[in-house]
Amino acid sequence: RTSMTEEYRVPDGMVGLIIGRGGEQINKIQQDSGCKVQISPDSGGLPERSVSLTGAPESVQKAKMMLDDIVSR
């Protein structure tokens, strides 16, 4: 199975929601999608934060859908 890494961007203000209490939400995204999700520690003052998604292409797609779902709330 091919693994890929894709850079994705999320609004900086949503990072807390994506990570969740004690990392609960980000762990759920990783478990449900099978994709490794790494959020860059700092946006460098930019409105968006970089997130790197690593996994099989379908896992990366699923993680993106889950991120979009959180961001659109």
Results as ranks from 00 to 15, higher is better:
Arg1Pro: 05
Arg1Val: 13
Arg1Ser: 10
Arg1Tyr: 06
Thr2Ala: 08
Thr2Phe: 14
Thr2Pro: 06
Thr2Val: 13
Ser3Val: 15
Ser3Cys: 15
Ser3Lys: 15
Ser3Asp: 15
Ser3Tyr: 15
Met4His: 09
Met4Ala: 01
Met4Trp: 07
Met4Cys: 14
Met4Arg: 10
Met4Ser: 10
Met4Lys: 14
Met4Glu: 10
Thr5Lys: 08
Glu6Cys: 14
Glu7Met: 12
Glu7Pro: 08
Glu7Ile: 12
Glu7Gln: 14
Glu7Ala: 08
Glu7Tyr: 14
Tyr8Phe: 09
Tyr8Glu: 03
Arg9Gln: 15
Arg9Asp: 07
Arg9Met: 15
Val10Leu: 15
Val10Ile: 12
Val10Asp: 03
Val10Ala: 05
Val10Tyr: 06
Pro11Lys: 07
Pro11His: 02
Pro11Tyr: 01
Pro11Gln: 06
Asp12Met: 09
Asp12Val: 09
Asp12His: 14
Asp12Thr: 15
Gly13Ser: 15
Gly13Trp: 09
Gly13Phe: 06
Met14Ala: 09
Met14Gln: 05
Met14Thr: 06
Val15Gln: 05
Val15His: 06
Val15Pro: 03
Gly16Ala: 11
Gly16Asn: 09
Gly16Phe: 03
Gly16Lys: 10
Gly16Cys: 04
Gly16Asp: 15
Gly16Tyr: 11
Leu17Asn: 08
Leu17His: 10
Ile18Val: 07
Ile18Ala: 05
Ile18Arg: 02
Ile19Pro: 04
Ile19Phe: 09
Ile19Gln: 09
Gly20Ile: 00
Gly20Arg: 03
Gly20Val: 00
Gly20Met: 01
Arg21Lys: 15
Arg21Val: 10
Arg21Phe: 07
Arg21Asp: 15
Arg21Glu: 15
Gly22Pro: 02
Gly22Cys: 06
Gly23Leu: 07
Gly23Trp: 04
Gly23Val: 05
Glu24Asp: 09
Glu24Cys: 10
Glu24Tyr: 14
Gln25Asp: 12
Gln25Ser: 10
Gln25Thr: 14
Gln25Ala: 13
Gln25His: 05
Ile26Leu: 13
Ile26Gly: 02
Ile26Lys: 04
Ile26Val: 07
Ile26Trp: 06
Asn27Cys: 07
Asn27Thr: 13
Asn27Val: 08
Asn27Lys: 14
Asn27Gly: 08
Lys28Ala: 08
Lys28Tyr: 04
Lys28Thr: 06
Lys28Trp: 03
Ile29Gln: 01
Ile29Asn: 00
Gln30Ser: 10
Gln30Arg: 10
Gln30Val: 08
Gln31Tyr: 07
Gln31Thr: 14
Gln31Cys: 10
Gln31Trp: 04
Asp32Asn: 13
Asp32Val: 11
Asp32Gly: 07
Asp32Ile: 08
Ser33Phe: 03
Gly34Asn: 06
Gly34Pro: 00
Cys35Val: 06
Lys36Ser: 11
Val37Ile: 12
Val37Pro: 02
Gln38Ala: 14
Gln38Phe: 10
Gln38Met: 13
Ile39Lys: 01
Ile39Leu: 10
Ile39Gly: 02
Ile39Thr: 02
Ile39Phe: 07
Ser40Pro: 13
Pro41Asp: 14
Pro41Ser: 12
Ser43Ile: 09
Ser43Ala: 13
Ser43His: 09
Gly44Arg: 10
Gly44Gln: 14
Gly44Ser: 10
Gly44His: 10
Gly44Thr: 12
Gly45Cys: 07
Gly45Ala: 06
Gly45Met: 06
Gly45Lys: 06
Gly45Asn: 09
Gly45Phe: 06
Gly45Tyr: 05
Leu46Ser: 13
Leu46Gln: 11
Leu46Asn: 08
Pro47Gly: 13
Pro47Gln: 12
Pro47Ala: 14
Pro47Phe: 08
Glu48Phe: 09
Glu48Pro: 11
Arg49Glu: 05
Arg49Leu: 07
Arg49Ala: 12
Arg49Ser: 12
Arg49Trp: 06
Arg49His: 14
Ser50Pro: 07
Ser50Cys: 14
Ser50Asn: 10
Leu53Arg: 00
Leu53Val: 04
Leu53Glu: 00
Leu53Cys: 04
Leu53Tyr: 00
Leu53Lys: 00
Thr54Cys: 06
Thr54Asp: 03
Thr54Ala: 05
Thr54Pro: 00
Gly55Trp: 00
Gly55Lys: 01
Gly55Leu: 00
Gly55His: 00
Ala56Met: 07
Ala56Asp: 12
Ala56Pro: 11
Pro57Asn: 03
Pro57Arg: 08
Pro57Trp: 05
Pro57Ala: 09
Glu58Met: 08
Glu58Phe: 03
Glu58His: 10
Glu58Ala: 10
Ser59Cys: 11
Ser59Tyr: 01
Val60Trp: 00
Val60His: 01
Val60Pro: 01
Gln61Ser: 11
Gln61Val: 09
Lys62Gln: 11
Lys62Gly: 03
Lys62Glu: 05
Ala63His: 02
Ala63Ser: 01
Ala63Asn: 02
Ala63Tyr: 01
Lys64Trp: 01
Lys64Asp: 02
Met65Ser: 14
Met65Thr: 13
Met66Pro: 02
Leu67Thr: 02
Asp68Trp: 02
Asp68Lys: 09
Asp68Ile: 03
Asp68Cys: 04
Asp68Arg: 08
Asp69Ile: 05
Ile70Met: 09
Ile70Ser: 03
Val71Asn: 03
Val71Phe: 07
Val71Asp: 03
Ser72Trp: 06
Ser72Gln: 14
Arg73Ala: 14
Arg73His: 09
